[in-house]
Design a protein around this nucleic acid. Structure first.
Lengths: 209, 209, 209, 209
DNA sequence: TATGAATGAGTGTTCATTCAT
DNA sequence: TATGAATGAACACTCATTCAT
């Protein structure tokens, strides 16, 4: 995890320093609190309590509550996108590549479900530069999915509205945070197979001619 | 729209009185504000400003900010469910009935997109009795969809996890609030056709034997 | 009960009119509410609720919350003082006259214990003219007691600080509202005998020479 | 003065720390404000003004207005009871022990008359646990007086209602806050002698036989 | 005679944040 | 590296009161 702009001058940090480790812990606690109470509903006092650090102490690690949310967004988005890249390197078949995207997303989603609710739910609270940066990350992630779907579409000579299809797929996946229950619902493997089935069968539309 | 428990004794109200009308206006303004800022992020002062009524004056119409959110939830959920019932009366074919559900939902969604974001986004902030009542409404709505899908499944002798399928469908539809853009995306008719296509094709899974 | 200055022009009132009766009822309800919550702690809404009259309606009968407290003070003080006058007319013996004062006070106190708590407890909240008028009433009542004690003192040729003695007597009597329990404590007759015993024995101090 | 439950963890406090000192100062200011305006009538803003600390700053020292009143009650009650214990250690004679109680009470009362008005006047506003704890303290204090009076009663073989007598004594003493004027009334020594005279002579009732 | 509707000022309390240490 | 102490601004909500009807 490598947050880019922190309150401390960059020159005094080195990767995986105690600073980074401590910050990562705080981010975890904060994620849990935002998960429970939402970003607006959570107070810095809540974060202080959950992390065991004093209110003032927290400000050594990030400069504002909003920046903290930014760091969370950035960390998880960077991570999920990076894993995706790694996994796609080993897959060539267009349909398998889409399935890989879905599996990667859901696998990460279920393993980090608190963070993923935060990312899904607190999508538009970041403002200005911070918001723009995260939005760019998301756009990029969206396009990496969109590209995979387009490739498949070409292979199948299908006809459908890619934008609607891809965003519907994101809807199926991101809405999970409202209903997924690990005790009764399938795990990442089976779930991504089922969602993949619905989506892939769903878009196999022979072009009309 | 008929809010159930208000500060005034029920006996002094009659349907569509000035009181009800004024409350309905306030609900509209409040919906717009919650849409913009979220429930937690919106202050009663924001509501006062947007509705043109004094802060104290608002409390004549509802007893708390939470009750206001409850009234919004209740109004829109009741309405969408009622329209569904009406529309389903005229449709017999199982597949058409599922398509009717989708169209009804998206039609209402797009016509009341601010409210629908509020309903989707502020799903779990209502507590205790208020929350339980709305949750019951939502469960009922979910089951009405689930029943339609089950009927179709029987007809097609398909095999799939109904729960996952139905909640994926809700995901496709409810996630709309994060991306739908009336200038570039299709209207309710076409959109519900496309979503319906993906979903219905997606679940047409012949039973293995 | 004849309050002196009300919001309605005097010319339109006549004694025991419906207006006076309604006001008297409101005063009773208000007394009960002030007894429970204190003057500052009670809201006009509480009074509205307890009297069954609308918030705005109350203002037809008195012009402010403070004036209402004034009316209560005035009514009860006038009444207890008037009864005292009547009772003293039939008693000549100095000691008996002091006992009559005590009995009159306690008899009234126990019969109107809610009001008496209000009078005792909300002693200094009335301001300016209103406060001055009630203070004058109380001073007069104090002096009527003080005079009786002075008369007795002369008869017995006792020596003691009259002010301290009389105010101690008032203390014994007015403090009652904090502890009197009708189920275990004696009634007005016996209680005033006991308090009278303590006080009268207590001040029978032969002058030193 | 050792408040029991504060917002800071007990482990980080040590007796007479700056925190305790500052809290004690605030308690003094608050006592003066409650004395002037009553508990309900005083606002947190009044306390802020009188103590020279910001409104929000006050909440660092106690968690609510009610808790503040509790701390005041507790401090003064604990102190007066403790002094009583010390003074009684040196007195054996039953009558002198009652006189010691009276002197101790009035001495403290006059030296802390603002606080004592608050304790007398805001007797029943504390609720639940807080109220119960203070009520227990008061009951204990009442019984320590009652025991002394009982002892005297046995010695004199007197007959009187102890409860009425003791509560009358408290009435004489606690009512002081409504009338005591240091410029014209006697000091603690003389005043407690006079009150003691009235009370002790008052209860010297030979048993009837 | 009484009230529904409304309000400005105020309530107790919490907010994210700062700064000396 | 971390915190105790403090703050101005804001929070949801209630206050006594008014006024057209």
């Amino acid at each position: 995890m490598a947050p880019t702009s922190l309150s401390r001058p960059a020159s005094t940090r080195h990767p995986d320093s105690r600073f980074e480790q401590r910050l990562a812990q705080i981010l975890q606690h904060a994620t849990a609190v935002f998960y429970e109470k939402g970003y607006e509903g959570a107070s810095m006092r809540d974060l202080s309590r959950s992390s065991g650090m004093s209110l003032a102490g927290l400000y050594y690690y990030f400069e504002s509550k909003e920046k903290l949310l930014y760091l969370i967004h950035k960390h998880y988005f960077t991570t999920v996108a990076q894993r995706l890249t790694e996994r796609l390197e080993e897959v060539q078949n267009p349909e398998e590549r889409v399935r890989t995207f879905i599996f990667n997303h859901l696998d990460f989603f279920l393993a980090n479900h608190k963070a993923m609710k935060v990312l899904s739910h607190e999508d538009d609270v970041l403002e200005r530069e911070l918001g723009a940066e995260i939005a760019a990350l998301k756009r990029q992630y969206y396009h990496s999915c969109s590209d995979l779907v387009e490739a498949l579409k070409r292979e199948h000579s299908s006809e459908f509205n890619t934008r609607v299809a891809v965003l519907s797929l994101f809807g199926m996946m991101n809405w999970l945070y409202t209903w997924y229950n690990p005790r009764i619902d399938p795990g990442a493997d089976e779930l991504s197979r089922q969602v993949g089935d619905i989506f892939l069968r769903g878009i196999r539309v022979p072009a009309a001619h």
